[in-house]
Simulated assay, not measured.
Amino acid sequence: MTEIDPRFVALQARYRASLAGKRADIEQAWQALAADCSDSASQAALLAVVHRLAGSAESYGFDGIGRLAAQLDRQLEPVRGKADPAQRSAALCALRDELARPIEELLAELRSGAA
């Protein structure tokens, strides 16, 4: 049996501790966007947190979170690809209903991962 490096265990524990904050950031941004999908600060927050999770979660052993975040990140690509704020808002508004379930699934996985 291969022994896990204690340094990795410590990094993984720190990452796990950060998941509650990431979950809160996504929840806050999503609630704000549900009220007003043109809120550029909430758009940026949602895009950034999901993208970072998609790139890092699996590296720390949180495969479910990483997989869901990567799927959501791909769904958000049409929004991220718009430089013009009005076009970005329109793209997000068009996707809002489609994004609800993947966001809820990611939030649920973050809850269990942080536990």
Score class of each variant (00 low, 15 high):
Leu46Gly: 13
Leu46Met: 11
Leu47Asn: 09
Ala48His: 05
Ala48Phe: 06
Ala48Asn: 13
Ala48Thr: 11
Val49Asp: 06
Val50Pro: 10
Val50Glu: 12
Val50Phe: 02
Val50Gln: 08
Val50Gly: 07
Val50Asn: 09
His51Pro: 09
His51Leu: 14
His51Met: 10
Arg52Pro: 00
Leu53Lys: 04
Leu53Pro: 02
Ala54Glu: 07
Ala54Thr: 08
Ala54Val: 07
Gly55Pro: 05
Gly55Ser: 13
Gly55Gln: 07
Gly55Val: 11
Ser56His: 12
Ser56Arg: 15
Ser56Glu: 13
Ala57Trp: 05
Ala57Phe: 04
Ala57Cys: 10
Ala57Lys: 10
Glu58Asp: 10
Glu58Met: 12
Ser59His: 11
Tyr60His: 09
Tyr60Ser: 07
Gly61Tyr: 10
Gly61Leu: 07
Gly61Phe: 01
Gly61Asn: 13
Gly61Glu: 11
Phe62Ile: 09
Phe62Lys: 12
Phe62Asn: 01
Asp63Met: 12
Gly64Pro: 04
Gly64Phe: 01
Gly64His: 07
Ile65Tyr: 08
Gly66Thr: 14
Gly66His: 03
Arg67Ile: 11
Arg67Asn: 11
Ala69Gly: 05
Ala69Gln: 00
Ala69Ser: 08
Ala70Phe: 03
Ala70Trp: 00
Ala70His: 00
Gln71Glu: 13
Gln71Cys: 07
Gln71Gly: 13
Gln71Ile: 06
Leu72Val: 08
Leu72Lys: 12
Asp73Phe: 02
Arg74Phe: 06
Gln75Tyr: 11
Gln75Thr: 06
Gln75Phe: 14
Gln75Asn: 05
Leu76Trp: 12
Leu76Glu: 01
Leu76His: 09
Glu77His: 08
Glu77Met: 15
Pro78Phe: 04
Val79Gln: 00
Val79Lys: 04
Val79Arg: 04
Val79Ala: 04
Arg80His: 06
Arg80Ile: 01
Arg80Trp: 01
Gly81Leu: 10
Lys82Phe: 02
Lys82Leu: 04
Ala83His: 06
Ala83Val: 06
Asp84Ile: 09
Asp84Glu: 05
Pro85Leu: 13
Pro85Phe: 11
Pro85Lys: 08
Ala86Thr: 11
Ala86Ile: 12
Gln87Asn: 12
Gln87Tyr: 06
Arg88Val: 09
Arg88Met: 08
Ala90Thr: 08
Ala91Arg: 01
Ala91His: 09
Leu92Ala: 04
Leu92Glu: 06
Cys93His: 00
Cys93Thr: 09
Cys93Ala: 14
Ala94Met: 01
Ala94Val: 00
